[in-house]
Simulated scan of single mutants.
Amino acid sequence: MSVEIVDDEALWDRFVDASPNSMLFHKRAFLNLQEKYTGDKLLPYGIFAGNDLTCILPVFLSKQNGLRLLYSPPRSSLVYVPYLGPATSPAIARLQPHDRESAWRSIIGELCAEFSRLSPNYVALGLSPGFLDVRPFERTGYEADLMYTYIIDLERPVQAIWESIESDTKKSIKDASRHPLTIAQATDTATFTDLMRQGLKSQGETFFHRQSPEYLTEILEAFPDHVRMYFLYLGEDLIGANTLCSFHGHCIGWMGNTAARQGFSANDYLVWEMLKKVKQEGCRTFENTGADEKRLNHSKTKFNPALVPWFYLYKRDPLYRTAKLGQLALGKIKRHA
């Protein structure tokens, strides 16, 4: 196997479309936007077996405070991408377990060797759910944090999904539906960003405070069939919003917030309406991110999701460890920034 930079964007996107474990975030236009809005250098690595592209792994090279850092995805404070990491070909998925593990070890070995050539002080990889075999990374010195997300099975009938929802939540949805609520597709990212900033003001400086609304505007324009924004109105008043990201039959409730209301839950109503909508459009699963934030667990589990693991991998050299100890107090470096 060999590792090469894949400059052919059409080849890259054909691979992403065919891969069983790729995400929309892997598409080249999405990667280019991540590069543009972080200022980090995109390194679109491909792993070839002969002439066959078997795996891709886009990483971003960042230079901060004299350190060389590799991220995949980039820092969440700048692009709000939950996962990136590798995506493999259908041929890898079809292999028998013995051959698949052997191929995976070879792929990771080649990638880690390439990363070493770049001499980074820190490498961080957020693997998408489904990549559970992190042993080849750990054997080369990576540490692994076990993370979680919530995923709802949409292949059941709508009535079965409804019956699985917590009873008080079903009541709150019914109560909300008695109000003059409407949902409309939107493109006003400035208003959306303002709504998010207001809803998250108690959380300090978030992605929505740091990043320009133009980032989301360009995403909506580049992927109109995959990323859509919806506004929830009570009469003429905007009270909530949700931005969904769909790809390969999987929908992520990517960004969203609702204003606090007295008397009914706008958030429960909006999530339920989004679930029904994306199911009707053919999505098989719906991901409601936020399982690792304790303050969100109560609201996220109302819809009876499955708790699904994923891994955040990182490797730190002695210089990074020393710099982190010296600079963490100044807020210049954060472990998962």
Rank of each mutant, 00 (worst) to 15 (best):
A222N: 05
F137T: 09
A124Y: 13
Q198L: 13
Y230S: 12
P157E: 09
F192D: 04
T191S: 06
S212V: 02
E143S: 12
R139P: 00
G253M: 12
L154E: 09
Y142G: 03
I239G: 05
S212T: 10
H179G: 00
L244Q: 02
L238I: 15
A184C: 07
Y215L: 11
E214D: 13
A176K: 04
L234I: 09
Q211D: 04
L127R: 08
P180D: 06
I239M: 07
S164D: 13
E138D: 01
G130Q: 10
L195M: 14
V227I: 15
I151Q: 15
E221Y: 09
E155I: 00
S167I: 01
K201L: 13
G130H: 13
E214P: 00
H209A: 07
G235L: 08
E138S: 07
E205F: 06
S212F: 01
R178S: 02
Y233P: 10
I152H: 11
L154A: 04
L200N: 10
E110Y: 00
H226S: 10
L132F: 10
S128L: 11
I151Y: 07
M147C: 14
Y215N: 05
T140Y: 02
Y148D: 05
K201I: 14
R117N: 08
S119D: 15
F231Q: 11
L154W: 08
Q185D: 02
Y142E: 08
T193R: 08
E143F: 07
G240M: 10
F131W: 15
N242Q: 12
L118A: 09
Y150H: 15
H226Q: 04
E236R: 13
T243N: 04
N242C: 08
P180V: 03
S167A: 14
Q211R: 02
I151S: 14
A113E: 14
I183T: 02
L232K: 02
A190V: 13
I165A: 00
G141R: 11
P129M: 08
A160C: 07
I219A: 04
K201D: 15
G204A: 11
L200F: 15
E163N: 14
K201E: 15
F192E: 04
A144R: 02
E218V: 06
M229F: 08
N242P: 00
W254V: 01
Q198Y: 12
T187W: 02
T187E: 11
K171N: 05
D168R: 11
F208C: 08
L234D: 14
Y142D: 03
A113N: 12
D175M: 03
N121L: 01
E163W: 01
H250E: 04
I173F: 03
T182Q: 01
D133I: 09
F131T: 14
A144K: 01
L181H: 05
I151V: 15
G256T: 13
I165G: 04
P136G: 02
F192H: 07
L125K: 04
A113V: 02
M196N: 09
F207Q: 05
S167Y: 08
P120S: 06
P136I: 01
I161C: 10
K171E: 03
P157Q: 07
T187R: 08
T193I: 06
R178H: 06
E110Q: 14
Y150G: 05
E155V: 03
T217W: 01
E236F: 05
L125D: 07
M147V: 00
Q203W: 12
S177P: 03
